[in-house]
Design a protein around this nucleic acid. Structure first.
Lengths: 215, 215, 215, 215
DNA sequence: TATGAATGAGACTTCATTCAT
DNA sequence: TATGAATGAAGTCTCATTCAT
């Protein structure tokens, strides 16, 4: 930010490195935990991928488990709150809003590395129930709540028919979750023939949802 | 011996056990691998859950990895072939067929313990790429092919509009996969408020799909 | 021997088998212990080679260790006593006697499967010190004593020069022991080019010994 | 740094250890493998004897088997090549040369801890045939070749009678091998009465060989 | 702060031994 | 007497964690 006049130019690289360390480690850890699972990921690999030694990792995180928890906390949804505000002030049609929501979900989460978190939580929920709960509270419930509000708004505006908000929310979210789960599990290891482009899938999903709920 | 009516009248408890053991171990292993993942599951736990000692497991499976592979092979889809045949001879409307398909999927796979396999493969794909490929070939592709045929039949009968078969198939399957993934990951560890009943979800899903594709 | 009129012909085969069992097991055990060593030999292999099941072995020998001890005791020298008597009554020259001794050693021990015992004891002495002691007392010392007597007889008859009996005995025995050690260690696994025939080696050894001691 | 005279002045205890570790482990492993055999030696014992923990051993050798192979390779004959050169330039009589050879064999190999390798290979040949072959190629054959050259030189100089070089070489080597085999098998566990001093045995052996081959 | 050698608890696997049949 | 399924102690090897430098 106001780093224009650096007070101590000599120390800058070192200092910046030092401050960046946890982030680099978290990034490396996310990628590896997602790819191989918690147990099969060795801390030494994480350290190596972040460009430091094994010992250094333990200067920033007291244990492998704490590293894992930090990975989850660090990547668990900040976006929902933003989206929630936008819905409140949205003026377009529900069809547009649903398309918009699905598109934004992809550009801001589903298409980013952070989306690996979804697969990670699915895989490790039983081994880290408190984290699963945390993810549920911080990500899943808010997301569903967001979708429910979109639907409720549509119903109130007589654009959408009356449906069980909760069930519908699950059905709207499911293909999105499924898309990232696939992206981080099967896709990297066995090239699927006929795998649709994400964009095509998202577009048709939005279209189907609108058709299924309209009137 | 009067073994005519009872093939194994003298079959000792031991002998009968011997025949039942692999199945019991596979069942126990499926449950634990699904719950905790491959790495976090100790063979001793599997053995204990099957009611035998550590050593006994190794009489039937030469290693933990082979046990895992056997679990996958044993549970990978037999149902798809049956369903394929039924579609070929189906006489009802496409709407009915889609409802039927979704319902059957749940009673024959999604609602059974074998469905844990889906979550297991998602979690371990990167660590066992050959198994992931096997699952892809034996389960995923046939399932998608089945759905594509249902859709094609509907289009040919002018009941369904023309859509990209492949994309639509993915969208139809996604909530089903998502349902079992959830059932074996989050559901057992953190009771979700507002979690819909599977039946309600499946019904609405079938309804939405039909609405989304009709005309 | 006096088995001519068999009292119970029906039971004969079974009975004979039963009585032969320990011998068959000991034979199998000797071969395997010699080949692979005590620790690397599995009791199941011994049983299989003797044509019985693992459990049966334990009907005859209470443990693997007792089986091993029985193998050693069973094969440890009966021949030395015979030879000792013959030396006492021998009337030929010392040169003839030495040739005779070396030749008989080969036909009665060195060339037989029992010679594997020598290699076995060498290999396992430290793990079974009491057996090593037993072998020392029952085989090694009597053998050396036998050779010393042969030498002493030759010196008394002025056929051989006066030498340290003990040292000479060791030098006479060493190539014999070495011959069987080789036969049961290197020979079976890596075909030695230029390996002399045992007979050629024994002949030259006897010749060298006689030349080295005569006058 | 004033590192000119002392290359590693600040070489920490740890660093110096790091360099010494493999050697210490190999030394410990040689002793234990020789004493107890490969299978009966536990890696933890090796580590303990080298003053480190179990895990440390695996930092330097990837498995017990690789440790064993390293032990063999590390101790397999460097001396033969030296001796070969000396024979080529030797100017004394064959009697002197044979005495010299036997004496040197003892001071440079037979009397050192490395001689345990001979017993080790004898014991484990069948379980590690490739190592046995290696030993045969690197140690046995060169040694025999060396002795054959000594004999051939003697025959050419008309000091020794014409004999089968190969058989004679085996007879010359046999008591040496036997001496070290005994030293590492029976000797440590059951004190042999009348066991000759190595020096006495070697002297008489050289004397006997010279007498047996002269003219 | 960073390193990497060292540790040791814990996992997989083997195999001598038991025992119901 | 004979079998072979079952057991569990013991061994090899891995890897999170510590700590001297």
């Amino acid at each position: 930010m106001s780093a224009i006049q650096e007070p101590n130019p000599a120390a800058s690289k070192r200092t910046r490195r030092k401050e960046a360390r946890p982030g680099e480690l978290l990034e490396a850890a996310l990628a590896l935990f997602v790819e191989k699972g918690y147990a099969a990921t060795r801390v030494e690999e994480v350290a190596a991928r972040a460009g430091v030694s094994k010992g250094t990792l333990f200067l920033y995180f007291p244990s492998k488990e704490e590293l894992f928890k930090a990975v989850v906390r660090e990547n668990a949804g900040r976006h929902v709150a933003d989206a929630m505000r936008e819905v409140a002030g949205y003026t377009g049609t529900s069809a547009e809003l649903l398309h918009e929501f699905i598109q934004r979900w992809w550009t801001q989460y589903g298409g980013t590395p952070a989306a690996g978190l979804t697969k990670l939580i699915m895989s490790e929920a039983a081994n880290f129930p408190d984290l699963a709960q945390y993810y549920q509270d911080e990500v899943v419930q808010p997301s569903h709540e967001l979708v429910r509000r979109i639907l409720q708004r549509g119903i109130a505006r007589r654009e959408l028919r009356e449906v069980d908000l909760n069930v519908a929310a699950h059905l709207i979210v499911a293909p999105l979750v499924q898309l990232v789960t696939w992206r981080f599990s099967m896709a990297p290891c066995c090239p699927t023939p006929l795998l649709p482009e994400p964009q095509a899938l998202l577009d048709m999903h939005a279209d189907m949802v609108v058709r299924g709920l309209t009137i």
